[in-house]
Design a protein around this nucleic acid. Sequence first.
DNA 1: TCTGGGGTCCTAGGACCC
DNA 2: TCTGGGGTCCTAGGACCC
Length: 525
Amino acid sequence: MRRAPTILHLDMDAFYASAEQAAKPSLREKPVVVGGIGPRGVVSTASYEARVFGVRSAMPTAQARRLCPNAAYLTPRFTLYRRVSDQVMELLHELSPLVEPLSLDEAFVDLEAGGVAADAAAARAVGERLRRDIRRRTGLTGSVGLAGAKMLAKIASEQAKPDGLVVIEPGTERELLGPMTVRTLPGVGPATAETLRRSGIHTVAETAEAGESELVRLLGRAHGAGLYAMALGRDERPVVAERDAKSISVEDTFDVDLTDRTRVRAELTRLADRCVQRLRAAGRSGRTVVIKVRNYDFSTLTRSETLRGPTDDPGVVREAAARLLDLVDTTGGVRLLGVGVSGLADFTQEDLFAQLATEKAAEEEAERERRAVDEAARQAVAEPGPERPRRWLPGLDVVHDEHGAGWVQGSGVGRVTVRFEQPWSGPGRVRTFPVDDPALRPGEPLPLVGGPPDGWPGAPAGRAGGEPHGGRAEGSGSRPPGEPGGRADPASAPQSSTPATRPNSVSAGAESEPGTGSGAGMSSR
DNA sequence: TCTGGGGTCCTAGGACCC
DNA sequence: TCTGGGGTCCTAGGACCC
């Protein structure tokens, strides 16, 4: 525990939803929900406007639609979020070499190790400057917590939300934490909270009073001792930069439970290949193959097999997965399948020789069967073929030959509705096309700030919404270098440039193509 | 019309070894 | 022919986090 609040926790505000609002002018200051669009989707992030209606992360999207039918429901665009996240992380690395990312939108920074702050006043100044820099660079807002320990910095940033900064001065933590619910402490979820509640423990102060031995008795060695320390405000965990991944996995939930065993095998093969692709992209190999099966009744099991040596061979992973599937009863229906690899090693390993020999034998033996499986996969998994219309998921970028860049507002009954607008434009106009319109194709995310990228063809004629939004200029100093003057700064909130049409009834009823025959509703996942 | 996807860490039992 | 004990690996499941 430090004597100065030099551990910083940054948490971007409603990150995915805010990025979408920055990218799509018509959605600014409107309820936006980013998450799974299908019948079994859940909410990743709700904008603050949507939270007013009770929409929360991890809530089934169907429930969110009932609470807030007029929100825009968008599928996530991780390419964009990763790009923005990289910009933010870059700013953090300017403060210290010790940056510990927790996700795309969250990180700890050790300011002391960076030599940029030694006391509370300096730390606060660094935090405020960081928030300004993030806003200028990305157009988005983030909240900052500063404290002498990780746990407290994280609690501080939570209190700072949205768009704020909170410092917890060392020495004040027990007084501050005492009245808070145990759920505030990291590692206390629904199950732990329930266990504690049954023992009459509701607050952090009561947790501390219970004593370490009682907590260990209730929760086990590691968890009990850890929780006791946290309740006292003790947290010595260091900020750790770059941790190597320990496992890589992929999984799919199907819109409709799978009952056909051949189809289950085919999907598992597909997942094994996807998993290996990611493994290889990371330059790693793994020794333990895991499959995950979630049944129709949500009961979930895993089966694993440890190989003699690490592999990144798709055939080996496929076959291990297939063997493991043989151990599982799937009659009744499969809701989710997953394939993972753990026991990761760096790709190049000398002792692969013995393993290679073994694998080669198995490989040849299995070659025949694999071809059969491949064929089955092709038949059973509806790959979008040339004649098969692509899926226009709400939120995705598109480009139209005549109308330029826009995004999918919704689709269904053979039509797709597109709103033509860009991060730097005003709210744009909506047009509808046949889903197989050859002039329409998938697009790339556009930068949120700085205007059109070099070589961008520019907004086509006929664009609606004329005036750029954002009357509140932030001063030329806040504009990225090289940007022509006079363009609206997307970082500044729009005032009242809402178009006359109601832009917030987007994507309702999307993906509701009736009776499209085989594979309806679950293609190309 | 209930419940995603990608992770981490911990526990516990059995095998196996010394 | 009455059970040791500890360490490590493997497997399965569960809690938790974003």
